[in-house]
C-alpha cells in the first residue's frame, strides 16, 4: 500500500499541500511508519485563505510546520473511531474539535469531504478548509454565549 505522502502526490488536488509538506521538511516524517491520521486540505481549501497568508507562511517555515502538524493526529483513526471523541490532540499539541453525527463529519470549521482513505501508515480524511489552532480562550467565548442563553 502507498504511504500517506504517496497518496497525496498521486491524487488530484493536493499539490499545495504537497509543496507545503516539502517546504516544511515533513516528507520523511509522514513517510515514517507512524501511524498517523491526516486531515488533508485540498488545493481549494488553501485557496480560501486570504491573499498574502501563504507568502508569510512560507517566510516562516517553523510556523508552517506547526500548522501542518496541527492537521496530523497520532494513530489510525477512522470516522467510526473518531466518533467516540469530542476532540483529539494533534501532533502540534493543540486539540482539534470533532463534530460527528450521522452524515455530518466536521473537524474544527472544516468539513470532511472524503473520509477514511487508507494508507500504509495511516488514514487520510480530506477536508475543505485549512484548520488553524484555536487559542484556549476560544472555548470560553463560545461557552459564555451558551451560558448566557441558559441564564437568559
Amino acid at each position: 500500500m502507498p504511504d500517506i505522502v504517496d497518496i497525496a502526490v498521486s491524487a488530484e488536488g493536493f499539490s499545495t499541500l504537497v509543496t507545503a509538506v516539502k517546504a516544511a521538511n515533513l516528507v520523511d516524517t509522514l513517510k515514517s511508519p507512524g501511524p498517523f491520521t491526516v486531515f488533508a486540505p485540498t488545493d481549494a481549501a488553501f485557496a480560501k485563505l486570504p491573499p498574502g497568508t501563504i507568502t508569510t507562511l512560507v517566510q516562516n517555515i517553523p510556523q508552517l510546520t506547526r500548522i501542518l502538524c496541527y492537521h496530523v493526529v497520532p494513530g489510525r483513526l477512522k470516522k467510526a473511531d473518531l466518533a467516540k471523541y469530542q476532540s483529539v490532540g494533534s501532533v502540534e499539541g493543540s486539540p482539534i474539535d470533532l463534530t460527528i453525527e450521522g452524515d455530518v463529519f466536521e473537524v474544527n470549521n472544516a468539513t470532511v469531504i472524503q473520509a477514511d482513505i487508507e494508507a500504509d501508515n495511516g488514514i487520510i480524511h480530506v477536508i475543505d478548509t485549512v484548520i488553524l489552532m484555536r487559542p484556549h480562550w476560544f472555548w470560553p467565548i463560545m461557552n459564555s454565549a451558551l451560558a448566557a442563553s441558559a441564564r437568559g
Binding site: 486570504p50 497568508t53 508569510t56 517553523p62
Partner: peptide, 12 residues
C-alpha cells in the same frame, strides 16, 4: 484590517 491580519498572521 482583517485582510492585513491574515496576511501578517504568520510573521515570526
Amino acid at each position: 484590517l482583517v485582510n492585513g491580519i491574515f496576511a501578517i498572521a504568520g510573521r515570526p
